[in-house]
Nucleic acid binder design. Structure first.
Lengths: 165, 165
DNA sequence: CGCTAATATTTGCATTTGCAAATAACCTGC
DNA sequence: GCAGGTTATTTGCAAATGCAAATATTAGCG
């Protein structure tokens, strides 16, 4: 498993890595979040592939399962998927009868997306896997630690929310 | 900023969200990591766009700056970029003279990638932005909290490492 | 040594992606 | 009740992506 431990001091005895620009990647938060996220994502994607659901599809199912019927833009916010990408993803899910698309009552510009019966079944079959997976990711964490991690991730997210959109 | 607060109890007075599958997205770790990661990524991408460097390119620069010259597969591990995608990404970076590509001495199958002079300058110009950005993400965190977050993200990553590859 | 299995990288190919422009439906002030 | 500006979604289009197959090279074994 790769070395890359602390390093990145101001140089010292050991030869600096040739092109010595010097950057402490291993301690860089965006790096740590990204690699954990990618790991989580690719591994879970493999887990649900046999169910013929992609990761992005699962994200849509999960968001609809959690928050109920909603508009496309709400779903985009909840899934972190670009709205144009999501529009087409939902197309495919509608075609496969996982999601029902209707026009919003109040505002006819907006779309109203909901789980179909089949989509609900798919969600219910994946949710236990998701929970199991989360427990795996949090192996060795006690409840307080797990909650602390969640809270800190929310804070990071909100800190970034305060930036120029 | 969307509502979506705690909710997801076992139901109670308020009407369950129509298609009541029931899933606590807001407390689901993979969701929290993904949305923080996506936020971090898209916002930083915008930040460096004026420098004519994409996020993936920055990841390559950062990995080379941190760990020095290395092989393509090492870089893939460090950046969490798929190796075939990375192969082509590096192509472009070589074409733009950000990265130098040579064949490894010991093993002529392997490639040896290093920052070019220009790539080093690009890295050095972005690193301060990256640090500034990390500080923004961690606004309100004291040093111990920030380090606790990093440590927990490493643990999550390692927990997943133990899974079937 | 010669041959088969493993490793490192590249390439073929079909999808997915995301920005920007187009479209559609509201909403506001007059 | 309508011009002009916003908001919600879709679509055009040029990349970027990732899986699987091809290539190139090394390693191991008899």
């Amino acid at each position: 498993m790769s070395a890359a431990s602390g390093s990145a001091r101001k140089r010292r005895g050991a030869a600096p890595p040739d092109t010595g620009v010097g950057f402490d990647l291993a301690g860089f938060l965006p790096y740590l979040i990204n690699r954990a996220g990618v790991r989580l994502a690719t591994a879970f994607a493999r887990e649900i592939a046999p169910l013929d659901v992609t990761l992005q599809e699962w994200r849509v199912l999960a968001a609809l399962a959690a928050d109920g019927p909603q508009r496309l833009s709400d779903l985009a916010g909840l899934t972190s998927i670009d709205i144009s990408t999501l529009s087409r993803l939902v197309d495919r899910m509608v075609a496969r009868d996982l999601v029902a698309r209707g026009r919003s009552d109040g505002d006819r510009r907006a779309v109203r997306l909901a789980l179909s019966a089949k989509g609900g079944r798919a969600a219910r079959s994946i949710i236990p896997l998701a929970h199991h997976y989360e427990r795996t990711a949090l192996a060795g964490f006690d409840a307080a630690e797990a909650e602390a991690l969640r809270a800190m991730l929310r804070r990071v997210y909100m800190n970034l929310d305060a930036l120029p959109r």
